[in-house]
């Protein structure tokens, strides 16, 4: 069995093993890898932010294309720094308010359309469910199941009344639907995470110790 002679592969493989060592218990090797990773990520992100945001959205358009208007949002962004001047720290509320206002303006109609109206469309039982010439009632049964699930789940998230009487029954049914959904989601994501582990093991067995050719 031959092993890699590339020092970067060795470094990557050893750091992976250091991180895996946390599965046993906290130890100096994990601490080293953790601190290295955290520190590197800060430095790396500073470079990414500079390249992807400061240079792409400010320096290049202003200095090369002379789009001076971009200095206005830049100045508004600088107001965040007034946090360090206690007497003027309230000025940082301006960029926060602008960001929240714009975000809400964009998000509200999109959310209402995508998360409410479209979902209602999908939930309502409609005549297309009867159109399957071979099995019209399966489509109908699934439609009814979805409608009941949605209505009961909504009642679980109703906060203006205590869960008593009919509301309690409905909320209980709703939480069953929610948990079944979460169970499916859990299994799906665990599979995705296992594939991440397989990817890391493949790297070590293929690139590092060449166990897999």
């Amino acid at each position: 069995m031959t092993m890699s002679t590339d020092p970067w592969v060795w470094l990557a493989a050893l750091l992976s093993l250091f991180i895996f060592s946390y599965l046993y218990k906290d130890n100096p090797l994990f601490k080293f890898a953790e601190h290295l990773f955290t520190g590197l990520s800060v430095g790396y992100l500073i470079v990414i932010y500079y390249n992807n945001i400061v240079r792409s959205y400010l320096l290049n358009p202003v200095l090369a294309d002379h789009r001076w208007v971009l200095l206005v949002p830049f100045a508004i962004g600088l107001l965040y720094l007034f946090r360090f001047i206690p007497k003027l720290s309230h000025l940082m509320l301006i960029p926060i308010a602008i960001t929240l206002g714009i975000w809400n303006g964009i998000a509200l109609p999109l959310t209402i359309e995508a998360d409410i109206i479209r979902q209602m469309q999908g939930t309502m039982i409609n005549t297309s469910m009867f159109r399957n010439p071979w099995d019209p009632y399966t489509g109908l049964a699934v439609g009814i199941l979805i409608a009941v699930g949605v209505i009961c789940t909504i009642t679980y998230f109703f906060f203006s009344r205590e869960h008593k009487g009919a509301l309690k029954v409905s909320a209980h049914i709703g939480i069953w639907f929610v948990m079944i959904g979460f169970g499916a989601s859990f299994g799906y994501t665990v599979m995705a995470r296992v594939s991440l582990l397989i990817g890391r093991l493949q790297f070590m067995f293929t690139e590092w110790i060449h166990l897999i050719k």
Binding site: I116, M120, T123, M124, I125, N126, G143, I144, A147, V150, I151, I154, T155, F157, F158
Partner: peptide
């Protein structure tokens, strides 16, 4: 939410 439940129920 009450409105949504009513609309879904009546529509269905």
């Amino acid at each position: 939410k009450v409105l949504i439940i009513l609309l879904v129920a009546v529509g269905s």
